[in-house]
Simulated scan of single mutants.
Amino acid sequence: MESARIVGALARYTGDLDLAEDVAQEAVAEALVSWPRDGAPDNPVGWLLATARRRAIDAFRRRAARDDKYTLLATGESDGGDGHLWDPDRIDDDVLALMFVACHPVLSPEARVALTLRTVGGLSSEEIARAFLVPVATIQARITRAKKTIAAARVPFEVPPAADRKARLGGVLSVLYVIFTEGSTATAGDDLLRPDLAYEAIRLARTLAALLPGEPEVFGLIALCELTASRFPARTGPDGEAILLEQQDRRRWDFSAIRRGLAALAQATSAGRGLGPYGLQAAIAACHAHARSVAETDWERIVLLYEALGRVAPSPVVELNRAVAVAMAGAPGEALTMVDELVARDRLPGSHLLPSVRGELLTRLGRTGEARAELELAARLCGNARERAVLLHKAAALG
């Protein structure tokens, strides 16, 4: 539970994220031996920090070229471990700095995700690999390369200055969003959902909100995640099969998550600066949360919200989702024209989303032969077994 704070405090003082993690783990290993024998200390976190700092000093002693850092660390060694290394006023800064370092722009998106889950989330390499369905060695390599890149780029362990924070905050939010979306709809594998991954993203987002309470877009992301996660209980059947929105039993939705999501959306709105990309997506999710059925959903409002989102954060996925909303609002022909424009411009190449939506629209327009071909194409491109089964079932139902 305290791993991010401990590693953050150690990284601040050593200036070496890799070393901070190593000495923190060595301190835990020493605690597993000494605490059962001598009893747990009154201040366990302070004990771990003091022990880890001594290990760091030993490491610097072994590095003759690091005498300057050794001198810096050795100063004040006699404070017993309860001094400035564990300053309660710096705890929030340390965790926040750890987030910004793990999500630094010098790292690849995959490395940012892995390093954030490892250093801030405290997940093991095995847990991260299992969540993203990649070999453990791949995750370990990403984390190792990320730490070496941070060291080579001399990334300072600090919260960015206020002038730079807003630009860097977008990178942190995007990492948390990627983690959540992978948990809410897995890109590959046999499970539609990976709730543990999604809930970890929500936890990290709430940690970020506690550290930056004045940033409305952080609350926009929390709102989006909570409202989306509220549908998790109804999205799969007893055998893990996918249940589409129109067939979901809305009584199974998590209404406490809906309340939390709406409260976070209100917090994002109260800033009076207008909603950002995550806040607008949360507002769309709120339309679904308020509706008693698909038919009673305010699709006209959703179309308007997607239009606004397309101006703030344009992307082919936003255009595709707007086309779906236009179709649900009663204009499938117009929606098909929008999708065909995406096809003509070769947007989303290799994605199953485009033929999946196109197949749905062609079905609504009675063009079943074309619809079946599109749905079968979508199934071939889809990496998730549960989604693929839904697409094949739809194609088979067309005869």
Rank of each mutant, 00 (worst) to 15 (best):
R145Q: 11
G366Q: 03
R388T: 07
A209I: 01
S351I: 02
H288R: 12
R322T: 07
E110R: 13
A385I: 03
A229N: 02
I258G: 06
K166A: 15
S256Q: 14
S270A: 15
A146M: 00
R53P: 01
L262Q: 15
G183D: 05
C382Q: 09
S184C: 10
A137P: 00
A50G: 15
E126R: 14
T185K: 12
G15W: 03
I91L: 15
A264M: 01
L72Y: 11
E126D: 15
G399S: 11
D94G: 09
R380G: 09
R66T: 09
T363L: 05
L98M: 07
R372M: 04
S351D: 03
K69E: 15
H84W: 11
A205W: 01
E217A: 03
L275H: 02
G189L: 09
A102V: 03
K166W: 00
L227E: 00
Q267M: 12
A308N: 10
D92H: 06
S293L: 07
V134M: 05
A24I: 04
H290A: 14
L169K: 04
S125A: 15
A335G: 02
V294G: 11
E307Q: 14
L48N: 06
V120R: 04
S351L: 02
E126G: 08
E296S: 15
H290K: 12
N43G: 06
V326L: 11
A271E: 07
V317M: 11
A263Y: 05
R168E: 10
E30T: 13
Y177R: 06
V312P: 00
E246K: 10
R54K: 13
I284G: 01
L265I: 07
Y70F: 12
D82A: 11
L275T: 04
G261D: 05
G276V: 05
G83P: 00
L123H: 08
H104D: 14
L32P: 00
A271L: 07
S174Q: 12
A295D: 07
K148I: 10
A131F: 02
G366N: 01
E300D: 14
G333Y: 04
Q248T: 06
C103L: 09
A64R: 14
W299A: 06
E360G: 06
H84T: 14
L262G: 10
E182H: 10
L353N: 04
W35R: 03
Q140M: 10
R63P: 03
A379R: 00
E319W: 03
I179D: 01
A257Q: 09
V33Q: 12
E30D: 14
A325E: 02
